[in-house]
Computed example of a mutant assay.
Amino acid sequence: MPVEEIFERLKLFLEKNIGSSVCVRSHDDSLLRRVRDVIGHLTKEYLIFEEPSIDDVREAEQFLFTASSDDVKAALFHRFERSSIEAINAFLKTLEEPPVYSLIVLTCVKFRDLPQTVRSRVKVFDLFVPEDFYNGLREKIPIEPDLILSLCKADFDVAAHVKEKGVVAEQVQFEPSSFFSIFKVERFGPEGKIKALLMLNDLFKRFANGEIDDKKFAEIYTNSIEQTKKIDLNQALVQISSLCEVLLEYNGVKDLSVYKWFNSVLKNKLLNFNGQLTLANLLIKLRRSAKR
């Protein structure tokens, strides 16, 4: 099935459920971000909220319950499972009985993290890309195909880039200055993600092979901190944590506590945290995971 057909199916699903609350779920955050484009083809009157707060919920309700100059009004709540419980509870009545001319769309990666009170109030659409689409990418990936395919399956923006342009065959090694220079760009795009993942994979292999002793590890950390003075470290750590999850799953790491730690960085990306300490912990967790 062509990817365009997947979004056309979603458009038809949303059109049929105007006056309802729906949840679009997928394991791929970047795929879910394309839901806004589908909504944009349905109506000109829509609002988008990222990991909505209780103030966002109140703004959405005020918006939805005013008359529409278009056929429909829509409110999109991206990653609703990351909302506070106060925001979720405040929105339950509207979820259950939205205005007849409105459309409420939640997106989520972890549907089970939504309270049952939400799950019971929404109609569900599973947004996924067929496996044969990813299999067709393999011939365009001359280096570490299984690893990069894992990234494609976790990040549709990367998959779309590989389908269009392929992957440059280039062996890379982890070195702090070249690694963190990737994050100096204004937009951390698919090419940067692929290169950063390959570098992290090289570091993981060197940890696993025992090539990095305590002294070398300390040098890597010290050099990394020096390089991060030129970038937004906290924002880079969010991106790196996402890539580390892909890397660890690819390498068969099953320690749930490690994934919970990386997820805590991703969930708190809008909050302040100690970047240097977080970077140290990230490297330690990669090293320990590689040695198991």
Rank of each mutant, 00 (worst) to 15 (best):
P2R: 03
V3Q: 08
V3E: 11
R9T: 00
K11P: 10
F13H: 02
F13I: 06
L14H: 05
N17W: 01
G19L: 05
S20P: 01
V22W: 05
V22Q: 04
H27G: 12
L31H: 01
L32N: 02
R33P: 03
R33F: 12
R34V: 07
V35L: 03
V38E: 06
I39V: 15
I39K: 04
H41F: 11
L42V: 11
T43L: 08
L47G: 09
E50L: 07
E50M: 04
D55P: 00
V57L: 00
R58S: 04
V72S: 15
L76R: 00
F77L: 00
S84F: 00
A87G: 01
F91M: 01
L92F: 03
T94G: 06
P98R: 07
P99D: 07
V105S: 06
V105D: 11
L106H: 10
T107W: 00
F111H: 03
L114C: 06
Q116S: 14
R119F: 09
R121Y: 15
F125L: 07
V129F: 07
I141V: 10
L147S: 08
I148N: 02
I148T: 04
L151W: 14
C152A: 11
C152L: 02
K153W: 13
D155S: 09
D157T: 13
H161D: 15
Q171R: 07
V172N: 09
Q173S: 12
S178V: 10
S181L: 07
I182E: 08
F183G: 04
F188M: 14
G189Y: 01
K193W: 10
I194K: 04
A196P: 08
L200P: 11
F204S: 12
N209C: 04
E211G: 03
I220V: 12
T222M: 03
I231N: 06
I231E: 11
Q235I: 07
A236F: 08
S242L: 09
L243N: 13
L248V: 14
E249P: 08
E249N: 13
Y250H: 15
N251P: 05
K254R: 15
K254M: 08
S264G: 12
N268I: 02
L270A: 11
L271S: 13
F273N: 03
K285Y: 10
L286S: 14
R292V: 09
